[in-house]
């Protein structure tokens, strides 16, 4: 992997990491959800900081080019995050459903009480 690509990816990861941190400190995203994004940054920095080690692993796993392995794992992580989001949406859908139902019943009970 060329030194140019490594430096470029490190800079991008850094900026992205700072952006996420900024959002956490401003309390714009819940910490529990920020962790999955952070894992991506940490993985990137770890891999880029140890080019020799990374090369060995990618060779061992059968990737022809080290950068392919980085992109592959980034892609897998994004898929996983997208799936987590689906899970969160499904849970919230259920929560909204039961809220809507309870409000409707409560309103009816209040009206019947009058």
């Amino acid at each position: 992997m060329s030194i140019n690509l490594i430096i470029f990816l490190i800079i991008i990861s850094f900026i992205f990491g700072l952006y996420i941190l900024g959002n956490i400190f401003q309390r714009k995203i819940a910490i529990s959800y920020s962790l999955m994004w952070f894992s991506y940054i940490i993985l990137m920095l770890f891999v880029l900081a140890l080019p020799y080690f990374t090369q060995k692993i990618s060779h061992f796993l059968g990737f022809e080019v080290t950068s392919n392995m980085i992109f592959f794992f980034g892609f897998m992580l994004l898929l996983f995050i997208a799936f987590l989001l689906t899970r969160i949406i499904s849970k919230q859908k259920m929560q909204i459903t039961s809220l809507t139902q309870e409000v409707a019943i409560l309103k009816k009970d209040l009206k019947d009480h009058e």
């Binding site: 909204i96 809507t100 139902q101 409707a104 009816k108």
Partner: peptide, 12 residues
């Protein structure tokens, strides 16, 4: 009647 403030679909 009860009035659902969101459309929940038949199941909901």
């Amino acid at each position: 009647y009860v009035n659902l403030i969101n459309n929940l679909g038949i199941g909901g």
